[in-house]
């Protein structure tokens, strides 16, 4: 089993007619993902590489049975695109778009939670997710993945790839790899994903990659201590990051002592996770943890 996406996933791509959207959607399709529709108001009835374009997400869902949305539209329109996908009944919404204003993210997150609480929003500003051998929804390079039994969850896109790469190199496959994004208001947080991995019978171990800023890792640590009995290997980026500096991700900023990599690593270690100071050791540590 995998979590959130598998062979039954049918993807509608919002922004398929754009350059990035098209490049990655076609890669997803080449991997075997059912990319069934794209949307672009005014271009309904057209096609992109054989994928039908609809004017609205609701029409795409009705016409193709799409159950998952993948969003590539520019930041000014992305929060509206998320609400459109939610209203159209997409169960999983993956928003790749980077640079959405925090005010929009806060409003959309609460709107989705209030109106369609069962809808899962991944991102924004995330690489998406892949269930190796089944489905790839997003921009993760699938050639570094391998089907298997480890779940990967991370706030950082490229660090997710790094971690998956380290696992695959040692022959350790993955159930699902998820990048939840580094923005201030992620639709899905560590705890949401940890609970899915804990409940998934095929997932035997979990890799969790955090970074400086906020207290999501500390909350995850408390959750792991209470509810997770599968081995967890954790890494937190930003040990050497200077305080008060914003390092790219709108979320990755340390103010005062709260949110430092050290505090997060301590919390995770205390919760029983194997905590590493070198991301290139993730594969080896998981191999040991799985025995």
């Amino acid at each position: 089993m995998a979590i959130l996406i598998d062979t039954s996933t049918r993807v509608v791509v919002q922004g398929l007619t754009g350059k990035e959207g098209q490049f990655h959607a076609l890669r997803n399709r080449a991997y075997g993902t059912h990319v069934v529709a794209g949307t672009r108001p005014g271009k309904g009835g057209e096609e992109v590489a054989g994928i039908p374009i609809f004017d609205t997400v609701a029409q795409a869902v009705e016409g193709t049975g799409a159950n998952t949305s993948l969003i590539f539209v520019p930041p000014a329109f992305a929060s509206d695109a998320i609400m459109e996908a939610a209203a159209a009944g997409c169960a999983v919404i993956v928003c790749i778009t980077e640079g959405i204003p925090a005010q929009d993210e806060a409003r959309v997150f609460n709107y989705v939670k209030q109106t369609v609480p069962d809808t899962v929003l991944i991102g924004p500003n995330c690489p998406g997710l892949i269930s190796p051998g089944k489905s790839n929804v997003g921009i993760m390079p699938d050639e570094i993945t391998l089907p298997g039994n480890v779940g990967v969850v991370s706030r950082s896109g490229t660090l997710t790839y790094q971690a998956v790469h380290e696992l695959t190199t040692l022959g350790i496959g993955q159930t699902t790899c998820i990048g939840i994004g580094g923005d201030p208001v992620p639709g899905t947080n560590f705890i949401d994903v940890l609970s899915l991995f804990q409940a998934d019978p095929e997932t035997e171990g979990i890799v969790m990659i955090g970074e400086i800023g906020g207290d999501a890792e500390e909350q995850a640590a408390a959750y792991i201590e209470e509810y997770v009995d599968k081995p967890v290997v954790a890494y937190v980026a930003g040990v050497t990051a200077p305080a008060g500096k914003k390092m790219g991700h709108a979320g990755a900023i340390i103010s005062g002592s709260k949110g430092t990599a050290g505090a997060k690593m301590d919390a995770l270690r205390a919760a029983g996770a194997v905590v590493l100071d070198d991301p290139t050791q993730i594969g080896r540590a998981m191999a040991e943890a799985l025995g």
Binding site: L159, Q162, G238, G248
Partner: peptide
């Protein structure tokens, strides 16, 4: 590329005995 990977690169450089002159994502 990517804030997380760059932050992590700074950390690994520090781990192997060096020090980064910058963060550039």
């Amino acid at each position: 590329n990517g804030a997380g990977l760059v932050m992590s690169t700074l950390d690994v450089v520090s781990l192997v005995g060096g020090e980064a002159s910058n963060f550039l994502d």
